[in-house]
Nucleic acid binder design. Structure first.
Ligand SMILES: [Zn+2]
Ligand SMILES: [Zn+2]
Ligand SMILES: [Zn+2]
Ligand SMILES: [Zn+2]
Ligand SMILES: [Zn+2]
Ligand SMILES: [Zn+2]
Lengths: 378, 378, 378
DNA sequence: GTACATGTGG
DNA sequence: CCACATGTAC
């Protein structure tokens, strides 16, 4: 099914989806994704790997926030119920948004594609894509452990909204063919659902449980790229609601220890190129503007109607040079004139001038009408 | 889910549905839809109603094809399992494509569209639409029975392919949320699935079982309109594969007796306007749509009859050089012309040419009237 | 919840809605709203009330087409579970959209308010309002029974979409504090939920069950006004999706017999004034202002004459009991009506409903005229 | 009510 | 990529 196949009748999609409403799915969210488990002292470990050697983070700060980041709460992959905690979920509460490559030089960068499915502005470090559009992120880090994980968590960029979770809007959460446990996750892996190595976190019923998707990378493979897609737009009124968002990537090991943190801003919209251009212009990048030509207004012409007399309703009037549309329109109009003059005659039968004028006009009109009808087979 | 929401990755939708490919469903079509039942002598009856009194049909022909058309095979509505056969399915084999209004003057016409997503070329009697785009067909016939049915069956227009059934392509037959029993039906009612009065026929496993959709019309309502949509494109390689198709509408009663037959060509594509233009150019038809003849207020007073179109009372007419008596006679006549054109506009608001021509005339007339009244203190 | 409550702070809505998701409510729609019950012969009853006393409608016709409307299916008020069937629900399937005042001169008109909470365009017969904005409709009819009901059902105005139900979009159906059984109803009474005399119909799980709200009027009170509000916008992608809609008002008695039908177009948007202006500009008619006619023969102005066109100038109008002076005036007036209907027929010859109504009226008018002329020696 | 933001259709 | 439709903010 191609783009236009569906696009031709978007309504159809919803309606087809409507019968089941997919509501039970979201409604039946239960807190099965989260299980608390004990864990070793991770704070020291994270400190060890995350000391501010790169100078980006203040030592005292990093201490605090890594304390949060490594809170030992375990999670299971939501699409494959497992009992063992793996990988670690996010610690509860709003995530830290500070960029920190960490000791192992963790980086994340949207790969610039040739086609125009999505855009990435280097200057703004921002990716522009439509909903459900796959975009690849290139990660990089120096060897740490055999199994490493990159967690992606979407947050509001503005401080005043950062305390709230970014959730899929009321509309997009009801998209068909989406498992209940990821309906609220706005950022999703492009990998097929159920793929090994992709784990969704986040519990809708726990206000402190931020949504995230974790992807596993194995040291044995040189693969450091993963494709994501958004399930909701920035403009969705019952979701992001035009607020700015950004993706938080954290490099973690199997114990949830954070080794680095990167941020990429994102805008999910219907017109990525346009919005990217506008953002860049706003940011100070000048571009040429186009002026819209204005169509000239419609002209209305004035027609002087020739009048021979001016008293009462007895003037002899020549038709103005206007045109009308429709045989019936013409004949109906002329007919009614005849009728009215006959009407007038009946009222002023004592006025020979008037009667005479009317008679002439009526005769002419009738002749005209007759010929008109004959000529046009009416 | 909005257009772009899905449109951004339409493929995804299909693929999500693909895992099972629903092939089992299609493959395992069982012949439960068709049950042979005995029936009275319908041939005579159909002859009776369809004798070529109008000269359109050759007697020998009508005999033959009505024999086929009224073959007493009973069917059940595929979406609502019923035990009684209703309404009759198509008789097996390729349908007759001869147009015949029949004794009851059966007509079918795609409703005029202007700002709509589909096109209808009057000259080519062909509808152009995208997949899943609803288009309304206006039927008409003189009263026959309380319950009447219009069967719509899509066939290949070219003789060399007319022996083959038109089936949904491999791709589109796997669209999500489509019941198995209509997956192969390329033409579908716009009504919600499961609705009363809409019946799908056609058995994939029987090569002689043509696909059709039957819609019931009750004499109690004056409603003679039904909306349809196509589920597949002309260009689909594994389906129509660029061959021309047309819709065969047959007016039938509850016994399957055929009372009339109409044909409308169709092209389902991604760019209806372009393809329509091309077809019309190829056909050498001076597109009536483009002949925008506007009233010119500066024309002579001579009676001028432009017969740009004979249909619909849409001629643009210049006032004849006659005179009338009385201010009110003039204004009443001109007023009534304005009224009638406004009336016409309200009835044909989908015809931009007509509306435009009327608007110009109305504007001129009103300006004329206004000035006339001002000049004469009316 | 007022307009600004949702519009100005949409985020608020989602958050309020999020905790419980309100999804279970919609999901658990069950077909409890409809129970079939036996009923007396309603067709006769409808015949009795709808016979063409005005000569516009053919007796046999009215008999049949109202048959649908009075299908004896019983319903309970959805918000107050009751065992007795009351009032009758809509008959299944797409509603008839033909305007017909009926014998008791049923009219519906949006009251033009002073403030600008909503707008009503007389010329377009269209109400413009924001979501959740109350607007009052003034009904009127001549006395029939003690308990009368006005059913309001929203339908798509375009034929190609009229076969589908108008449902609340995915977003607005999840608005907080809305009972499950009216979540899908886009048009709602402004009265407090649970108010006596307001009944919601429509079963989401039954494709043939159209949504409607029924309001009771008691003859003992002179109250003929009711306020409504829309719960969803025209632009909602997962709902109306920018298609045109209109409200169908039917005057019914407690048995579901239909006594009259009126239509008012509607547009629910964020900028009613702007969109109204645009629509009127597009229509090219500034019909908002009334023309001060000067009928010299100022006779009894007992009943107001129907003004101009509504959505298509296809209303069936009963002659008002006014008098005119002069044989020619009468015949001219009737003649012009015939002409205009013939004109309309030529423009809408494919619309059997309209053509049929016109034919009957024309025939009657011509007979009337003929006899009138004969009787008066004209 | 104006200017802008942003989805939609071509 | 453009014009427009249409929600949003001030
Ligand atoms: Zn829901
Ligand atoms: Zn969304
Ligand atoms: Zn399939
Ligand atoms: Zn196909
Ligand atoms: Zn809505
Ligand atoms: Zn007319």
């Amino acid at each position: 099914m191609s783009y236009s196949d569906i696009g031709a009748l978007p309504q159809q999609v919803m309606e087809e989806d409507s019968p089941g409403f997919h509501l039970d799915l979201v409604d039946e969210y239960i807190k099965k994704d989260y299980m608390i488990s004990s864990s070793g002292a991770l704070i020291d470990a994270s400190e060890a790997v995350l000391n501010p050697s790169n100078g980006i983070i203040d030592p005292s700060d990093s201490l605090t926030y890594y304390e949060e980041e490594t809170m030992p709460v375990s999670s299971v992959a939501s699409h494959i119920p497992q009992e063992h905690a793996f990988p670690y979920p996010r610690p509860p509460g709003p995530p830290i948004q500070t960029v920190d490559r960490g000791r192992f030089n963790f980086t994340a960068k949207v790969t610039n594609n040739s086609n125009k499915k999505y855009l990435y502005s280097e200057g703004l470090n921002k990716v522009y894509a439509d909903v459900n559009c796959d975009f690849a992120v290139q990660f990089n880090w120096e060897p740490i452990a055999e199994r490493m994980f990159v967690r992606a968590c979407v947050v509001f960029a503005d401080k005043e909204h950062a305390e709230k979770r970014v959730e899929c809007c009321m509309q997009h959460r009801h998209a068909p063919n989406v498992p209940d446990n990821i309906r609220l996750n706005i950022l999703r892996s492009s990998r097929e659902l159920g793929t090994q190595g992709v784990y969704y976190h986040g519990d809708p019923s726990s206000p402190d449980s931020w949504y995230s998707v974790v992807v596993e990378f194995n040291a044995s493979t040189r693969q450091r790229t993963h494709a994501y897609k958004f399930a909701c737009k920035n403009s969705c009124s019952t979701g992001i609601n035009r607020r700015s968002i950004q993706i938080l990537f954290t490099l973690e090991d199997i114990d949830g220890t954070v080794y680095g943190r990167q941020v990429i801003a994102a805008r999910i919209c219907s017109c990525p190129p346009r919005d990217c251009r506008k953002d860049e212009e706003t940011a100070g990048i000048q571009r040429s503007k186009k002026r819209v030509a204005k169509p000239d207004a419609a002209k209305s012409k004035k027609v002087k109607i020739e009048t021979l007399t001016n008293q009462g309703d007895e003037e002899i009037v020549t038709f103005p040079p206007v045109q009308v549309v429709g045989h019936n329109v013409v004949t109906a109009g002329l007919d009614i004139m005849v009728k009215m003059m006959e009407h007038g005659k009946s009222l002023k039968k004592d006025d020979p001038e008037y009667v005479h004028a009317c008679n002439i006009s009526i005769e002419n009109l009738k002749a005209t009408l007759e010929q008109y009808r004959r000529d046009n087979g009416l």
